[in-house]
């Protein structure tokens, strides 16, 4: 068991290292002054000089790289071009906001998708099945930002049920703090992006679970489970569904990654102050240190999400760790 985990951790660390190396070179390969993406050109020349020395930009590339890695290790991403504050401060609350939006809706989507997919696949050939398969394929094909806009148009503007965007009402929490997350106001703001994201993410696990159940139905152990006199529901939940969860679980890391990466879009529509929105705004302002930091954090989230999904998988399939 331990060797499996050691290997997995190793892989994750390596992936991250390569990604931040990639970032380092991408940001330095720009035409013009290679330091233009690290130090704001808007600063006084004197201040630029001080920072250049602080970040080691007067040194050769490999030394710069070492400084870069060392700074990252202590979460020093430099100063924002836009606000002049340390990037770490700008970004700190954003990570949590993204997690609060993406993870719960992924969990809801997978739970719902697996359940509905299993039931529909078990009772195959129904009208409901055909309708749901068509609807979820269509939904999956729609751009999520467009769905979000339709949802806002309908639920927020026509019906006035939910706020149009943002994480809390303006002025409610002048200083962002943890109390904010416990308020009804926060939940009210979370509701619509959560629902849209859940509905959108629902399609994939639903379709996969359905086809996976269809493949399970002919298996010998399902037949034996029926012959044992188990009720139909028990055969479905404890045998067919349990085993069909495996292929679903293998795709979870991938889709979790997509969801985190896709949060860029949904956060933008709902003005949700997460990493994705920060990144998009920072790109618009050419605030490169923030772009880089936001990207790296999204990458960390993706990799950690993958690790968690792997953990889940080993819990579901005893053959992986024990064999």
């Amino acid at each position: 068991m331990s060797s499996f985990w050691v290997r997995r951790l190793w892989q994750s660390a390596l992936t991250l290292l390569i990604m931040l190396t990639l970032m380092f070179f991408m940001f330095r390969m720009l035409p013009g002054d290679p330091t233009a993406t690290v130090i704001s050109p808007a600063l006084y020349p004197k201040a630029q000089e001080t920072l250049r020395i602080q970040f080691g930009l007067d040194k050769p590339l490999w030394e710069q790289y070492l400084v870069y890695v060392k700074n990252l290790a202590v979460f020093d991403f430099g100063l924002s071009f836009h606000t002049g504050r340390p990037v770490a401060d700008e970004i700190s609350g954003r990570l949590l906001n993204t997690i609060l939006l993406v993870f719960p809706s992924m969990i809801a989507a997978y739970a719902l998708g697996a359940l509905v997919g299993a039931i529909v696949g078990w009772r195959r050939g129904s009208k409901l099945e055909a309708i749901l398969v068509f609807l979820s394929t269509a939904l999956q094909s729609a751009p999520v930002f467009w769905l979000s806009m339709l949802a806002i148009l309908f639920f927020s503007i026509r019906l006035d049920l939910f706020p149009i965007g943002h994480i809390v009402s303006p002025g409610m929490f002048p200083e962002e703090n943890w109390r904010m997350y416990l308020s009804m106001d926060f939940l009210h703001h979370l509701a619509l992006p959560f629902l849209v994201n859940t509905l959108y993410q629902f399609c994939f696990p639903f379709l996969l679970m359905r086809s996976s159940i269809l493949a399970t139905v002919g298996e010998d152990y399902i037949e034996l489970a029926k012959m044992k006199g188990l009720t139909d529901r028990r055969v479905l939940y404890h045998h067919a569904m349990r085993n069909s969860l495996l292929p679903l679980a293998t795709t979870l890391p991938m889709t979790l990654g997509w969801a985190v990466a896709g949060s860029v879009v949904i956060e933008t529509v709902f003005s949700w102050p997460g990493l994705g929105l920060l990144m998009v705004e920072a790109v618009g302002r050419s605030d490169y240190p923030v772009v880089q930091a936001a990207f790296l954090l999204i990458a960390v989230l993706t990799v950690v999400g993958t690790l968690i999904a792997d953990l889940l998988y080993t819990l579901l399939d005893p053959r992986i760790v024990n064999a």
């Binding site: 010998d220 152990y221 489970a225 045998h239 005893p318």
Partner: peptide
């Protein structure tokens, strides 16, 4: 019943 192929008849993850 004693089934034909015990490998496939037993649920592999239980």
């Amino acid at each position: 019943m004693i089934t034909q192929s015990a490998l496939n008849a037993l649920n592999p993850v239980k």
